[in-house]
Design a protein around this nucleic acid. Structure first.
Length: 558
RNA sequence: UGUCGGGUCGUCUAAAGGCUAAGAUCUCUGACUUUGACUCAGGAGAUAUAGGUUCGAGUCCUAUCCCGACAACCA
């Protein structure tokens, strides 16, 4: 077997598709769909599903529908429709034609329900919710038949029509499929197909007061749209017999439902309900808080669509439940940002450095390459002067072995500028270093270095009189526990990291003055940052997207 | 104690009865470096258990163990 064949190994869904292609099961078509319910913001778990569905269609020259599963007007809102469309587009995918809605099919769905009634496969049940629940039984024991199960077709038809007309109160009657009350699969025990909901629907207005349940609407919608492979998550596996029963019984086109494992991420929660609580209780600042695993949060954080798509590829597709390490996501983010971001200088924890032999008032424009890994990225200049800010961590009075930054008597290169030697430093009464003194070597200027000096360390800096003061928001993981959701005796809220957000003031080079919201940069030796929409004319706000890998501090920590 | 699904390096994914179980990430070593980044080179690290079939088993069979899903007029 050749190497590239190994690389091209198929996941189990691709195997199914290629098999279907071979046997011409769907006339060579591949048609998937992404079916969100418009009741919340999309998160990284949805992103995986989006990448799988759209990705499969791209790979096999097929199509993908975006279809909103809007069958429950009491829980859904148009507000979410726009955010979902934006997120899918931002991820870089295009759905086929206009987006679809399950509600587009309410008329057809109603007709199919009538067909089931006429053919003796559905009935109106007058039982209360409690009674239906009780008669359903438990998984280990069969349920019992509803006393309304054997109504005549005529009576069922009449009742269903009157349900539609709004003659009955909410909760008084439902339409149920007549399948098997003793099935070991609870979903086959005469599942409810329609319920009465006196709710205004965002798209159909007040036309309906009965609404189809997920199982009824979803499979038939797939059928109507000609979907070939209906991909969902593992928990819908038990729904598959019903999915198949409906289309088969109605004698309409039958797509196949394929279940895959949902994405779980370490140190992260992924349920809409739990994320909503974080927002409502103000543990975070909204759905697009950069600490949120929502697509809008990650976008604001500075993650890129390519990074998320690559991450989804690395996670893969399988049927076993898994928890993916967030480190894999962070790797994908760094990988993409490393390719595309300009390198700039920003000092996050400043300490003053005075170049004592540099003329007061003198300013030199130093040339800086924007991105060494991008030959077309060009260069810029940054002003250099006698007084600079450097990173507090880049100086140690009493350094450990192999510390190649500044310390008394030691030399470092100031990136894009001169080699300096530390001559002195000043401490305040608490022992905190307040000022560092150094001398520079005029022959060591970057690009024209004739000094012959070799130094091991290079540090970043900004010129104090020219520096731009900005706000920087540093983020750490939102939860301290690897599985915030995996403890029986503790709630995920208890694992919230109290230090997940730190707001600091920092100094950045003047070229950043014109940066716009969404701009992404690498602060050299620190990490990737992007400009937050909270930025104003007076003050730029940067979000820390992700830090650079840092082997030095890792070693020190040991 | 029902039905269905699932158990391969710490993590995610490969290997369709056949070479020393592969790759990515994480981690460790080293090289390079005007970013302790990137890049490059190398190391460590897994078939849940017990039987069986077979010349040969991660893969097939049996049993056991472990994990998950299912009892909404939610999706």
């Amino acid at each position: 077997m050749e190497k590239n064949e190994v690389l091209e190994s198929l996941n189990f869904i691709e195997e199914i598709i290629e098999d279907d292609l071979k046997t011409d099961k769907y006339d060579g078509r591949v048609y998937t769909r992404f079916p969100p319910e418009p009741n919340g913001y999309l998160h990284i778990g949805h992103a995986k599903s989006i990448c799988v569905n759209f990705g499969l269609a791209q790979k096999y020259k097929g199509k993908t529908n975006l279809r909103f599963d809007d069958t429950n007007p009491t829980k859904e809102d148009v507000e979410y429709v726009e955010s979902i469309k934006k997120d899918v587009e931002w991820l870089g995918f295009e759905w086929e034609e206009e987006e679809r809605y399950a509600s587009d099919y309410f008329d057809q769905l109603y007709d199919y329900a009538v067909q089931l009634i006429k053919e003796g496969h559905a009935y109106i049940d007058d039982s209360s919710q409690e009674e239906i629940s009780r008669m359903k039984g438990v998984p280990t024991e069969p349920g019992e038949l509803s006393p309304y199960r054997d109504r005549s077709v005529e009576e069922n038809l009449d009742l269903f029509e009157r349900m539609r007309k709004g003659e009955f109160e909410e909760g008084t009657r439902v339409l149920r499929a007549k399948i098997d009350m003793s099935s070991p699969n609870m979903h086959m025990r005469d599942p409810i197909l329609y319920r009465i909901l006196n709710s205004h629907h965002d798209r159909t207005g007040d036309k309906w007061c009965i609404y189809p349940m997920y199982d009824f609407a979803h499979g038939i919608s797939d059928s109507i749209e000609g979907i070939t492979h209906s991909i969902c998550t593992l928990e819908f596996e038990v729904h598959r017999p019903l999915y198949e029963w409906l289309n088969k019984t109605l004698r309409i086109y039958e797509p196949i439902q394929i279940e895959m494992a949902r994405l779980n991420l370490s140190y992260t929660i992924m349920s809409k309900r739990r994320l909503l609580r974080l927002v409502e209780e103000n543990h975070v600042n909204g759905w697009d808080d950069p600490r949120m695993p929502t697509i809008s949060g990650m976008r604001r954080r500075g993650y890129t669509p390519a990074a998320i798509r690559n991450f989804a590829k690395r996670v893969g597709v399988a049927r076993r439940e898994a928890v993916t390490d967030v480190a894999l996501l962070e790797f994908s983010v760094r990988e993409d940002l490393n390719k595309i971001t300009p390198r700039v200088m920003g000092v996050l924890d400043p300490v003053k450095l005075v170049i004592t032999n540099y003329p007061e008032g003198q300013v030199e424009e130093m040339t800086a390459i924007n991105n060494p890994s991008d030959p077309e990225g060009g260069s810029r200049t940054m002003p250099f002067s006698r007084e600079l800010y450097i990173e507090r961590g880049d100086f140690m009075e009493d350094p450990p072995r192999k510390y190649f930054r500044l310390s008394p008597g030691k030399m470092v290169r100031l990136k894009n500028a001169y080699i300096i030697e530390c001559t002195d430093f000043v401490k305040d009464e608490t022992g905190k270093v307040t000022e560092i003194h150094a001398t520079y070597n005029p022959d060591s200027k970057s690009g024209e270095d004739t000094s012959g000096l070799k130094v091991k360390g290079t540090i970043h800096w900004v010129s104090i009189p020219h520096a731009e003061k900005v706000e920087v928001r540093l983020y750490d993981r939102l939860f301290l526990d690897e599985f915030p959701n995996g403890h029986k005796d503790k709630e995920y809220i208890e694992f919230l990291n109290p230090d997940s957000l730190k707001v600091i003031e920092a100094y950045v080079e003047p070229s950043l003055k014109t940066a716009k919201a969404g701009d992404k940069v690498q602060f050299m030796r620190k990490g990737y940052y992007c400009v937050d929409p909270d930025s104003t004319e007076e003050k730029l706000v940067f979000n820390q997207t992700v830090t650079l890998r840092d082997n030095w501090s890792k070693k020190q920590g040991k």
